[in-house]
């Protein structure tokens, strides 16, 4: 499965949120969508997920335009904030991921199997009888991830899944997403933590003021010039064993106010 977005533009009132974005990704890779606040990351993710139509441009799925239930079976979305309105039991919540497949009637064997697998994959099987409102933030995010996995979609889009979590759970959720990508799923994840983005993603897409300023390997994208221009932050770079890491370290002078395209060329 391959999703291609071409020349996406999007407005909120007069303000241009996305300006001619081209992006393609597929199964088996983990793409990090990064950029400063207001860059248009969440909007782009919602357009990719089919949650809102773009004002201009097209999104195709393996060359077709899927909508509704057809799309819902192939693409799972993990929303920002982790809204859960009623005091559901964990296994009931996870079972909601089967709604694109079976809407009425008791769950079938494939549904039960998918729920079990999702509980196991997100490592929340032991929480299955808990009420969601009694979980910690990290547990809750893993449960919501299990819900998204229960869809058994080829693609998973996750909007800031680790932003509110403690370091232990940040690592744990990133590891779970990484494992899914290694297992053949396509993952697009919106991230603010550049260290995690650098470490776990196969590829990073840097958005700034509605445009993609870089789309390449984490090492290439997180160059000093680009991070200083987009974030106004200088990274500290280090190495542990064979692995490089980056750490946002200090602010530099005011952010680049010029056309971000220039920094990319």
């Amino acid at each position: 499965m391959r999703i291609e977005a071409r020349n996406i533009t999007c407005r909120a009132g007069r303000r241009l949120i996305l300006d001619g974005v081209d992006l393609a990704f597929g199964t088996g890779e983990m793409v990090g969508l990064i950029g400063p606040n207001g860059a248009g990351k969440s909007t782009l993710l919602r357009i990719l997920a089919g949650l809102r139509p773009p004002e201009g441009g097209t999104v195709t799925h393996d060359g077709n335009r899927l909508t509704g239930r057809d799309l819902a079976r192939k693409l799972a979305f993990l929303a920002q904030g982790g809204e859960v309105n009623w005091a559901l039991r964990v296994e009931h919540l996870v079972a909601l991921g089967r709604l694109p497949h079976r809407r009425f009637g008791p769950p079938g064997t494939d549904d039960l199997r998918a729920v079990e697998n999702a509980l196991a994959a997100a490592e929340v099987t032991e929480l299955r009888d808990r009420i969601v409102s009694t979980l910690s933030g990290g547990e809750r995010m893993r449960v919501l991830l299990a819900r998204a996995l229960a869809v058994e979609a080829a693609i998973l889009l996750a909007d800031e899944p680790v932003t509110a979590l403690d370091p232990y759970h940040q690592l744990r959720v990133m590891e779970l997403l990484r494992a899914q990508a290694d297992g053949g799923k396509g993952i697009v994840v919106v991230l603010h933590d550049l260290t995690l983005a650098h470490r776990f993603c196969d590829r990073l897409v840097l958005l700034d003021r509605g445009r993609i300023v870089a789309d390449a390997s984490p090492r290439e994208v997180l160059s000093d010039a680009r991070t200083e221009a987009a974030y106004g932050v200088r990274l500290l770079r280090g190495r542990t064993g064979t692995e490089e890491y980056v750490l946002p370290w200090e602010r530099v002078a005011a952010r680049n106010k010029q056309d971000p395209q220039e920094g990319n060329s």
């Binding site: 929303a79 809204e83 309105n85 919540l93 909601l96």
Partner: peptide, 9 residues
């Protein structure tokens, strides 16, 4: 139950 975005998805 999971919000409007998730329901749409």
């Amino acid at each position: 139950t999971l919000g409007e975005d998730t329901a749409t998805s």
